[in-house]
């Protein structure tokens, strides 16, 4: 029986690594992967809290997060494909079209 705080700490660690990866990496695709890691860290936190409080709501929310993440991945990748078709590049330091 592993205490839930251990899982929660692991979740926080993963989230931090995800943030780090997002800022360290410079290609859109890997940054997108980092976002997925953060989402998963959130899931892990939900589940460990569900365990800690003995309630199933956390598990239900995880399912919703996974669904939303799947939808987000599909649309996000589609956007990335479009960006790549137009720029032949995925480097975020080269994509400056949002400049005001």
């Amino acid at each position: 029986m592993i205490p839930p705080p251990a899982f929660l700490f692991l979740a926080v660690l993963l989230f931090g690594l995800g943030v780090l990866a997002f800022f360290v990496k410079k290609d859109l695709l890997t940054q997108f992967m980092a976002v997925e890691i953060m989402l998963n860290a959130g899931n892990l936190a939900f589940l460990s809290l569900a365990k800690a409080f003995g309630r199933a709501e956390g598990q239900a929310l995880v399912l919703f997060v996974i669904t939303v993440a799947a939808a987000e991945a599909v649309v996000g990748l589609a956007i990335i494909v479009v960006v790549f078709r137009q720029r032949r590049s995925l480097r975020t330091d080269e994509l400056k079209d949002l400049k005001g």
Partner: peptide, 18 residues
């Protein structure tokens, strides 16, 4: 005025977000 803040770089936006 705020236009200058918009660098167009994803990383800057993410930083603000963070």
């Amino acid at each position: 005025g705020l236009n200058t803040v918009q660098s167009g770089l994803l990383r800057d936006y993410a930083l603000a977000f963070l």
